[in-house]
Each structure stands twice: as structure tokens, then as C-alpha cells.
């Protein structure tokens, strides 16, 4: 079964759909968690600490968090590798362009590939900035995420990178969620409008929810 799926273009799309939905699910939780920044340093930092103690005493400190991280890394890698291989196949299948160009599919559809690359690079920066603290502006403080978030969004480039990436995320989800439904065979004529609406709502909510954090810092609501 695994061989059949990985060797087929339709199967590889299934891998993309499933890994994409896993990441989407995580993003919803991540976005809701982020919004706690509006309720002060104490609540935000307590929430961040709780993330490490989830599942105790069954799970040891940080076990659940690491489990989630492993699942996410597998999803990101599976998504990116399938996307790369499928894109190579697609580009090879249409080597000659038409001389007469015509306006093509929607912006969200056309930007899936580059949008995905932008998001991949963003994830690397985001982890180096706020998880490991490697490229963090100012002194990175372990266990004090509230201050770390403030530091990042006090720099112009932190805001620019983050907001651009979140706009790319919105576009990616807009086409990606609906596409995943089609790939998994969940779409239908009667359900099409509903699926597109859900995709748009998810894209809008996630983008707005994530961007609310740098906007909060920039406007001084979060300080």
C-alpha cells in the first residue's frame, strides 16, 4: 500500500493532503495559543509552561511537546518532498509554453509553489528566532516567551518577515484546504461551495489571528 501510494502521482497528492491537514490542525491550536499574549505576560508564560507539562503524570516533562514536534517534522518533510517531486513531474510534463498567453488561475492557485517555499523558509527562521533563540534580537530568555515575542516584533524586519509569511499562509490554505478535500475524494458538486467557504474562513481567521500578535506589539496594546 505504501509503495502504491508513494509511486503514484495521485497517491503522492494524498500524502500532501494528509500532511497539510495535520499542519493545518496544529496551526489552529497554535493561533489560539498565541492570542493569550493579549492577556499579559503572566498568562502567556504560564500557557507556554503548560505546553511542556501536558499529559503529566503519564507523560514526562516535554514528552507531549516533543511528540507533537516529531509529528510536525514528519508532516513538513513529507509535504515538501511530495511537493518537490510532483512539481518536477508537472514542469517536465509541460516543457513548451504557449506563445499566446492568457490570464490563468487564481492568485492563490498560482502561488502555491513559491508560497510553500516562503513558508518553509519562514518556519526555519521562526524556530531559530523563538524556539532556539539562535537569531533572536536581544537576549533570548528561556521560559519567558512573552518578552521574546516583544523583542522580535520590536524589530522592523521581524514584523515584515512575519506578516509576509502569514499572508502567504492565508493564500496557501485558501487553495490547499479545498484541494486536500478533492484529493481525498471528499469534494462533491453539492459540497463544493461549503468547502470553498470553509477554506476561505480558515485562511482568513488564521492569517488575522497570527498577524494580531505583531500588530498588537506595534500598536502598543501588547507591551
Amino acid at each position: 500500500m505504501a509503495r502504491t501510494v508513494w509511486d503514484s502521482s495521485v497517491g503522492k497528492k494524498t500524502v500532501m493532503a494528509v500532511s497539510g491537514l495535520i499542519m493545518l490542525l496544529y496551526l489552529v491550536a497554535h493561533m489560539i495559543g498565541n492570542l493569550k499574549i493579549y492577556f499579559g505576560a503572566e498568562e502567556f508564560n504560564r500557557y507556554a509552561h503548560w505546553l511542556r507539562t501536558v499529559g503529566e503524570p503519564f507523560m514526562h516533562y516535554e514528552w507531549t511537546l516533543w511528540l507533537i514536534r516529531v509529528v510536525l517534522v514528519v508532516a513538513v518533510v513529507a509535504h515538501a518532498v511530495s511537493a518537490y517531486q510532483l512539481s518536477r513531474r508537472d514542469i517536465k510534463a509541460r516543457p513548451d509554453k504557449y506563445v499566446h498567453k492568457k490570464p490563468r488561475a487564481s492568485y492563490a492557485t498560482r502561488t502555491m509553489r513559491w508560497g510553500g517555499v516562503i513558508l518553509g523558509l519562514f518556519i526555519v527562521w521562526h524556530i531559530l528566532d523563538l524556539t532556539t533563540g539562535t537569531v533572536h534580537p536581544g537576549g533570548f530568555q528561556e521560559g519567558r516567551p512573552y518578552q521574546n515575542v516583544l523583542d522580535t516584533f520590536s524589530t522592523w524586519y521581524g514584523n515584515v518577515i512575519y506578516i509576509v509569511a502569514m499572508l502567504a499562509l492565508g493564500l496557501h490554505i485558501r487553495h490547499g484546504f479545498w484541494s486536500a478535500a478533492q484529493t481525498l475524494g471528499a469534494g462533491s458538486r453539492t459540497r463544493d461551495r461549503a468547502l470553498k467557504t470553509v477554506a476561505n474562513i480558515l485562511a482568513l481567521l488564521l492569517t488575522a489571528g497570527f498577524i494580531a500578535v505583531p500588530v498588537g506589539v506595534m500598536t502598543g496594546v501588547v507591551s
Binding site: S9, V10, K12, K13, L86, R89, D90, I91, K92, A93, R94, R104, A105, T109, M112, H175, W178, S179, Q182, T183
Partner: peptide, 10 residues
Amino acid sequence: GFGGCTLTGE
């Protein structure tokens, strides 16, 4: 050697 579907709808 056909490509895959990216659901552009073309």
C-alpha cells in the same frame, strides 16, 4: 509522462 493535478480547473 503526464503531470499531476493541482486543481487549477483549467
